[in-house]
Amino acid sequence: MLWAALACAAALPAQAQPAYPDKPVTMVVPFGPGGTSDIMARILERHMGEQLGQAMVVDNKAGAGGAIGMLQLMRARPDGYTVGLSVIGPEVLQPAIRKTGYSHQNFDHVCRTYAVPLMMMVPKDSPFQSVADVLAFARKNPGTLTYGSSGRGTLLHLAMEMLLDKAQAKGLHVPYKSSGEMVTGLLGKQVMLFSETPTVSKQYGLRPLAVFAEQRLPGYPDVPTMAEAGWPITASIWGGVIAPKGLPAPVLARLESACQAALAGDAYKTEAQRLETPPAYMDGQRFAAFAAQQSEAYGKLIRDLGLADKD
């Protein structure tokens, strides 16, 4: 009888685990509301949530150039219920500048979702009509050209530093906690200009002067490249979905497929194209390799510009 009972027990199926996901998924965004990363995350959360069959909820965690949000994400349980929007600044630039307590290797990469060049922009009533006007002012008035960024060491900061360094001009960097605050500072005349993505230019009706890209953008055919303005400098913001290291393989695969399907949908494409930030999909493996390459390249640039903190 005992052997029969044991045999019957062994034949019973294991208790079924709930299918992932069976509750909402939090997406940590390492900047405050209003900037490119927040705007793109809120587009993605809707369409990726539809693919997952559960809501995705954006959780903005601004500060320290994005490092605060990245640390929160790194420390979260690797179960797929906390993911994050990775951006070039928090993931690869900040660890090259200061001891953040993390690197790109501390995360599982799910998918890259966008890559878009920066654009120098000013308010519509700005006296600056070109990059030449900006640099002429900076040379004539050293240290009085005020420009904003979403934090020290972000790509927004580095792009302007590269330009000013090559032009042998000086400006005054004014860091903000987020691009939303930076826009408020620009419109309130606290800063004269900043470099951000076309997403922000379109969202807030700002006037672009030049784009940090090799070619003009289709949506801005009259805006010259930096090379056409005399300064061959490129800088692109990219973003994508990452998660705490150690996701179970089926969960990672589920997130990756949901991301790919979301970006392939017409609804996502329409919203993203409207903001001049079309999909730029990479799967998790390619995204991880891309982040490693970017970390190496920008780490060298930051050291060369003397922006890394001294130990």
Rank of each mutant, 00 (worst) to 15 (best):
A243F: 11
R254P: 07
L187H: 08
V200G: 13
W231E: 05
S178G: 06
E228W: 07
V251C: 09
Y220L: 13
I242W: 09
P175G: 02
K189A: 01
E196N: 13
V174D: 03
L252M: 06
L209D: 04
Q215P: 12
E196S: 14
P224A: 07
T225C: 10
G230W: 04
V251D: 04
P208R: 13
Q190G: 01
Q168R: 14
Q168Y: 05
Q203T: 08
Y204F: 13
S236Q: 15
A261D: 04
A229P: 15
G185M: 01
K189M: 02
G246Q: 12
K170E: 11
P221A: 11
E196A: 08
Y176H: 06
P232T: 06
G205T: 07
L209S: 09
I237L: 15
R207V: 08
S257A: 10
C259R: 12
L255I: 03
Q203R: 15
V191D: 02
P248N: 11
G171S: 07
S195C: 11
V191E: 03
V223I: 08
E181A: 08
V174I: 01
T234C: 08
Q260A: 08
I237H: 12
P232W: 09
Q190A: 00
S179I: 02
P198H: 08
P224G: 10
L217G: 06
Q215W: 05
K177C: 03
L172A: 10
T184R: 04
S236P: 09
G246K: 14
L209V: 04
P248G: 12
L187G: 08
V241C: 07
L247W: 09
P221K: 11
G240C: 08
H173C: 00
V174F: 04
C259N: 04
L172R: 14
L217Y: 12
K177R: 07
M182I: 02
S195G: 15
Q215D: 14
A210G: 13
K189C: 00
K189Q: 00
K202Y: 00
Q190V: 02
A258L: 08
P221Y: 09
E228G: 14
F212D: 14
G185N: 01
G171D: 01
W238S: 09
I237D: 05
Q190D: 02
K189W: 03
Q190M: 03
I242L: 13
G188L: 02
A227F: 01
L193A: 05
M182W: 01
G185I: 03
F194M: 12
I233N: 10
V183F: 06
V200M: 11
A258D: 01
G205E: 03
I233M: 10
K202E: 04
R216G: 06
T225R: 15
G205N: 13
A227H: 05
L255Y: 04
L187W: 02
D222F: 11
V251Y: 10
L193P: 15
Y176D: 03
G188C: 01
L217E: 13
L193R: 13
A261T: 05
W238K: 14
L247T: 04
T197M: 09
R216D: 06
A227W: 00
M192A: 03
Y220A: 00
A235Q: 13
L206H: 12
M226Y: 06
Q203P: 14
G205V: 05
K189H: 03
C259T: 01
P208Q: 13
C259M: 08
A258E: 04
P250C: 07
L217V: 03
Y204G: 07
E228F: 10
L252H: 10
M226I: 03
A169N: 09
T197E: 10
G185H: 02
A243S: 11
P244A: 07
